[in-house]
Computed example of a mutant assay.
Amino acid sequence: MSGGIYAIHHLESDRQYIGSALNIAARWRLHRKQLKDGNHHCAHLQRAWNKYGAQAFEWTVLETCPAEQLLEREQHHLDSTRRKYNSSPTASSPRGTKHRPEVVAAMRQRVLAAYGNPAFAERHREAQRRRFEDPAQREAVKQRNSGVYRVTRPSGEVLEVRGITQFCRSEGLSVTQMTALARGARLQPYRGWLCEVITPSKTGQAKRKHRSYPLPSRPTEPRQAKRFAALSPQGVRLEGRNLAAFARQHGLDEHGLRGVAAGRQTHHAGWVIRWQAAGEQVELLPPVRGNRNVKHSILTDAGGEEYNCDNLLAFCKTRGLNAPSLVEVARGRRKQHKGWRCRYDQ
C-alpha cells in the first residue's frame, strides 16, 4: 500500500487517532502490535484500547498522497477533527532526523537493558506466540515475505509461484538448485526445470542484494545417458546406457568403470568398457594376461575346495570376503583370511 493519512477510529465515541506514513499497512501492523503489547506511545489511545478492546476500533485510510504532502495533509485532518486521541495538535515526523553518536549509544543500551530483564523478555516471547497463534496471521506473514517466481516445467508449462520453498517440497525438487537457477548461479536446467525471479522475497533481500540475470535458454532435446559397450572377463560383449545400474548388477565399482572408459585404467576387475555413439561399434580387446593387467586367482576355502577366479572383487562381494586381504594372502604377507587361502595362477 502507498503512503497516505490514516485514522484509528473508536466507533462508539467517534474519537480518532490521526497519523501519516509512507507505508500505511506496515504502520498499522506496528500500531496494532504496540497496542496489544501495552506499550503504545499515545497513552490516551492505549487506555481506550485496554478498556474497550480491539473490536471497538476501526482502521481507516483517509487518503493517499505523495511523500512530500504527508505532513500538510495530516495537519489538515488534525485541524478538521474535533474529537481525537492525538496529544499534539501539530503534525510532525522524525523522518530525516540524525541523532548524535552518544544518543544512538544510549538508545542501544536502553534496548539491551530491557531485553536483559527476564520478565520483559518473557512478555516479549509471549506476545510473539500470541501473534502467530492465528493461522490467518501466519499465512499473511508468509504471503508478505514470499517472493514470486516464474517456473517452467520440463513439459513447457509455465507457472507463477509464490514461495519457492513450499513449491519445491510439493514437487520433490531441490530448493537449493531451484533458487540457484532463479539467481542465475546455475545456468543449466535442473531436471528440465527452469526458474526465474519476478518479485524477490523480503527475507532474501535482507540476506543479500538481489541481482537479476538473463534466463538461460532451454535445451531443445532432453539430456540422454551416454551409451557404452563392455567386455566381461569371460569375453561376453554387453551394451547399455545406465552405467550405475550396470555396475550394481555385476557387482562392480562405477568409478572404476568410468576410469576404464576414460582411459585412465586398462581394465576394472577384468572388465573393459568404452563409450560409443549411436550407431557406432567400438572395438573391445581383452586385457593381456601376464602383463599385470589381469591375474587369475585360485582360492581355497576352509574345507579345502578350490575355486578359479578372474574377478577377485566380485568373488569376494558374493561371499562376504575382503579382496585386499586376499591379495595380501596371495602375495605371502598373510597366511589366510577368514580360513580362505589365495594364490595367483602363473
Results as ranks from 00 to 15, higher is better:
Ser2Lys: 12
Gly4Arg: 05
Ile5Tyr: 03
Asp14Ser: 13
Gly19Arg: 07
Gly19Met: 02
Gly19Asp: 01
Ser20Gly: 11
Ala26Ile: 03
Arg29Met: 14
His31Thr: 02
Gln34Glu: 13
Leu35Asp: 06
Lys36Phe: 14
Lys36Pro: 02
Asp37Ala: 14
Gly38Asn: 05
Gly38Val: 07
Ala43Ser: 13
Ala48Tyr: 05
Trp49Phe: 13
Lys51Met: 09
Tyr52Lys: 07
Tyr52Thr: 04
Ala54Ser: 12
Ala54Phe: 05
Ala54Ile: 02
Gln55Leu: 07
Phe57Cys: 11
Glu58Lys: 14
Thr60Val: 09
Thr60Arg: 15
Leu62Gly: 00
Glu63Gln: 13
Cys65Leu: 11
Ala67Gln: 09
Leu70Arg: 14
Gln75Gly: 10
Gln75Met: 13
Lys84Ile: 07
Tyr85Trp: 07
Ser93Ala: 07
Arg95Asn: 04
Val103Phe: 08
Val103Thr: 13
Val104Arg: 09
Val104Tyr: 04
Val104Met: 14
Gln109Ala: 09
Ala113Tyr: 01
Ala113His: 12
Ala114Pro: 01
Tyr115Glu: 12
Asn117Met: 09
Asn117Gly: 07
Phe120Val: 10
Arg123Met: 06
His124Lys: 15
His124Leu: 06
Glu133Asn: 06
Pro135Gly: 09
Pro135Arg: 00
Glu139Trp: 10
Lys142Leu: 15
Gln143Asp: 10
Ser146Trp: 04
Arg153Met: 05
Val158Pro: 07
Glu160Lys: 08
Gly163Pro: 04
Gly163Glu: 06
Glu171Phe: 01
Leu173Gln: 00
Val175His: 02
Thr176Ile: 04
Leu181Arg: 00
Gly184Gln: 04
Arg186Gln: 15
Gln188Tyr: 02
Pro189Trp: 10
Cys195Asn: 08
Ile198Cys: 04
Ala206Arg: 11
Lys207Asn: 13
Lys209His: 06
Lys209Glu: 14
Ser212Asp: 11
Pro214Gly: 08
Arg218Asn: 10
Pro219Met: 00
Glu221Gly: 00
Arg223Asn: 10
Phe228Thr: 03
Leu231Cys: 03
Arg237Phe: 07
Arg241Lys: 11
Ala244Gly: 04
Gln249Thr: 08
His250Arg: 12
Leu252Trp: 03
Leu257Glu: 01
Arg264Ser: 12
Gln265Met: 11
Trp271Cys: 00
Val272Leu: 05
Val272Ser: 06
Ile273Gln: 01
Arg274Gly: 04
Gly279Glu: 08
Gln281Pro: 01
Glu283Tyr: 08
Asn293Tyr: 06
Lys295Gln: 10
Gly303Thr: 15
Gly304Arg: 11
Cys309Thr: 07
Asp310Gln: 05
Leu312Trp: 05
Lys317Gly: 06
Leu321Asp: 02
Leu321Lys: 04
Ala323Glu: 15
Ser325Val: 02
Leu326Gly: 07
Glu328Phe: 12
Gln336Glu: 15
His337Glu: 08
His337Lys: 06
Lys338Met: 14
Arg341Ile: 10
Gln346Asp: 13
